[in-house]
């Protein structure tokens, strides 16, 4: 089965729907005022995706480990920045980035490495055709989970400052004082992937599987890949969130086990 190639005209047709939505949101009854944002986001997505198409083309052709590493680093940095940007309040200084970056590194990177070397084992193991999509899917999902969990943790800690300090005053350790909010945050971050797994194949056909089927692969192969990806994402999200929440919790307290909300700042 040959894949149907998309022409610029085809993309234009799809774009016309977005433009229609933008017009509707600007001039419709509700005056949503998100038309501009929508168009900017759509243009951004197009430019980014076309650029990545070109980058991947070069990457696939060269198959060079150094280029791969560079690409992976750029992806990690972008995801790290995104986590920081999604927090209403973040830690001041480089900690604001380090927590997200370190958690992504510990989860997405290690799990991608595991999948490449143990499960899939392409030759060489860093074959970009496998490594980049895997890392991309893992980073994207763990990034969402970590951002969600960190945002939740920060809100809870700020809101429950009195209760946390009341426990410190009773002689409880910082771990005991913050534990309920850590649990809340980890739960909030992992629920989306649990829900996704629960409905995939029934309500939704996940993106990767859709892509493989569109590309002409047998549905059975597509399912297997999708199952593996879901498991990797679940593990990556869970471990990444746990690492991130722990690091952030640690950072909330200083060496005298004081709750240091002065280490937070509101993001613009």
């Amino acid at each position: 089965m040959d894949i149907i190639l998309l022409t610029p005209f085809d993309l234009g047709l799809a774009a016309s729907l977005v433009i229609l939505l933008a017009i509707f949101s600007e001039y419709g009854r509700l005056k949503l005022g998100i038309g501009r944002k929508l168009v900017i986001a759509a243009v951004r997505a197009s430019v980014q995706l076309m650029a990545i198409g070109l980058v991947l083309k070069v990457l696939f052709e060269s198959n060079h480990p150094l280029l791969m590493m560079l690409m992976a680093t750029v992806m990690l940095l972008m995801a790290t920045r995104e986590i920081a940007a999604r927090q209403e309040m973040g830690f001041v200084g480089w900690w604001g980035f380090a927590i997200g970056g370190l958690s992504l590194l510990l989860s997405s990177f290690l799990i991608t490495l595991f999948a490449l070397t143990v499960i899939l084992s392409p030759t060489p193991w860093y074959t970009p055709q496998y490594a980049i999509p895997l890392l991309g899917m893992l980073l994207g999902n763990t990034m969402n989970g970590i951002a969600l969990a960190l945002d939740r943790l920060t809100r809870e800690v700020v809101r429950e400052r009195g209760a946390i300090e009341a426990r410190l005053l009773m002689g409880h350790s910082w771990q005991m004082a913050i534990q309920p909010y850590m649990r809340e945050a980890i739960r909030a971050g992992t629920i989306p992937i649990i829900n996704t797994m629960a409905v995939s194949g029934v309500v939704t056909l996940p993106g990767m599987m859709t892509g493989q089927i569109l590309a002409g692969n047998p549905p059975g192969t597509a399912s297997n890949y999708q199952i593996m990806i879901l498991f990797l994402i679940a593990a990556g999200t869970g471990f990444g969130i746990s690492a991130g929440v722990w690091l952030a919790s640690r950072r909330f307290f200083d060496e005298r086990q004081r709750l240091r909300l002065d280490r937070l700042k509101k993001r613009a």
Binding site: E160, G162, A166, L168, M170, G171, H172, S173, Q257, R258
Partner: peptide
């Protein structure tokens, strides 16, 4: 720190509960 806080018994103006 945990021992010190038990020793000095601060009662904040607003009580908070966990």
């Amino acid at each position: 720190p945990d021992q010190w806080r038990r020793l000095v018994g601060l009662l904040p103006a607003e009580s908070a509960w966990w």
